[in-house]
Design a protein around this nucleic acid. Structure first.
Length: 275
DNA sequence: CTAATCACCTGAAGGC
DNA sequence: TGCCTTCAGGTGATTA
């Protein structure tokens, strides 16, 4: 489910609600969901702040860090007291605070993880710069894209060059930049590389303003849906006319993922073009 | 190094 | 109604 805009929405709503609270108990309802890898037990630790890198939620505690990844269907649902605890069918874990509040981790597919660690660096070692990080510059992106022989869609999804972009926003950014997702990264013109750099950021910012996108499972910590899905131009728009040229939007499989694009206004960059 | 495939899981949707 | 297949906002391991 969640890509950068959805995770950012979760972080923004979680930060003011859980900061300053003290963990009194951690429950795991599925044996793989919670991993205790920190030296000190979480009980008695205070939430200092809530942050994010790519799709990883980082909850800094007084003596360790709780790293949460929602994967496909994970939801963090907060409540103020036991009476308001949400009634969900796939609760996999729960954090209880000493004042009676807490949050349920609901996750039908069981892919999501809550990990308590001493140091976040090993966890994030293979995660590239966040797409909205100031250090993610045009020069950096330009160099990396120009040097890669991967197809651009796979490169954006890898999380190594830049983190936070998933299947939806990869397709949307490539459409807005006019680049066919099957294009080889190094063959893309410098003008369109620059366009892709700015479209990545604007499509992510736009989605954050609309509280992320809900396709089926995504909910924010208050249980609300996102609204960004109403503005998709290619994602799940196969068979419909392109908003630019009227050509029918296609769906194919690239990098193992369903990929949506307009064959007419997204240019394909490949070696030996033509023959 | 890359690319493809599977693995992890459940539920929804479509074909018959 | 029900059975079977395919697909899904992700990523990590394994295999060519």
């Amino acid at each position: 489910m969640p890509e950068l805009p959805e995770v950012e929405t979760v972080v923004r709503e979680l930060q003011p609600v859980i900061s300053g609270r003290t963990i009194s108990k951690v429950e795991s309802y599925w044996h793989k969901t919670v991993e205790f890898q920190a030296t000190r037990p979480p009980e008695g630790q205070r939430v200092e702040r809530v942050g994010r890198r790519g799709k990883y939620i980082l909850i800094a505690l007084s003596g360790s860090t709780l790293v949460i990844h929602l994967r496909m269907t994970g939801q963090i649902l907060t409540y103020q007291n036991a009476h308001q605890r949400p009634d969900v069918s796939h609760a996999r874990a729960e954090i209880f605070f000493s004042d009676g509040s807490g949050f349920v981790f609901n996750d039908s597919r069981k892919f999501g993880r809550l990990r308590f660690v001493d140091d976040v660096e090993p966890v994030l070692a293979h995660v590239g710069l966040d797409a909205l990080d100031k250090k993610f510059t045009k020069t950096y992106f330009d160099k990396k894209v120009a040097a890669s022989r991967q197809n651009i869609k796979a490169l954006l999804l890898s999380q190594k060059l830049v983190s936070g972009i998933g299947n939806i926003y990869a397709d949307e950014a490539l459409f807005r930049a006019g680049i066919n997702p099957a294009s080889e990264a190094s063959q893309i013109s410098s003008v369109r590389r620059h366009r892709l750099y700015s479209e990545i950021q604007s499509v992510l910012r736009f989605a954050i303003e609309h509280m992320g996108a809900t396709i089926s499972d995504y909910r924010d910590p208050n249980g609300n849906m996102g609204q960004a899905q109403h503005f998709f131009r290619v994602y799940q728009q196969q068979g419909k006319p392109c908003v630019n040229c009227g050509n029918t939007i296609s769906k194919v499989r690239i990098a193992g993922r369903g990929t949506h694009f307009c064959g007419k206004c997204q240019k394909l960059y490949v070696r030996n073009n033509g023959k």
